[in-house]
Amino acid sequence: MIDKILLVSLTLFVISIAIALFRIIKGPSMPDRAVALDMIGVNLISMIAIISIVLKTKAFLEAILILGILAFISTIAISRYIERGAIIEHKSDN
């Protein structure tokens, strides 16, 4: 029973990632793409957690942490690029 539920939720995550990918390709503006990329990161983290439940292993927990860190930093970098045009500023004005 629980295996079927986990497989169904994995399928739903795949559909969700496909929808976010559509938003990245089509997306009218750049903030849409940034939010969709962040959503793909969160969905990947959830998929890895469910896969590690299915396979009954703890080997993927570091991968979850690294994906979380990279999704956080890349979202910040994309949004700074959209907002200011430069990712690392030479000297901030405040």
Partner: peptide
């Protein structure tokens, strides 16, 4: 991972700080 921490420092503040 250590490099990503340093890059996050650069992102959140600026170069000179």
């Amino acid at each position: 991972v250590l490099a990503s921490a340093i890059i996050l420092l650069y992102l959140s503040t600026d170069l000179e700080t």
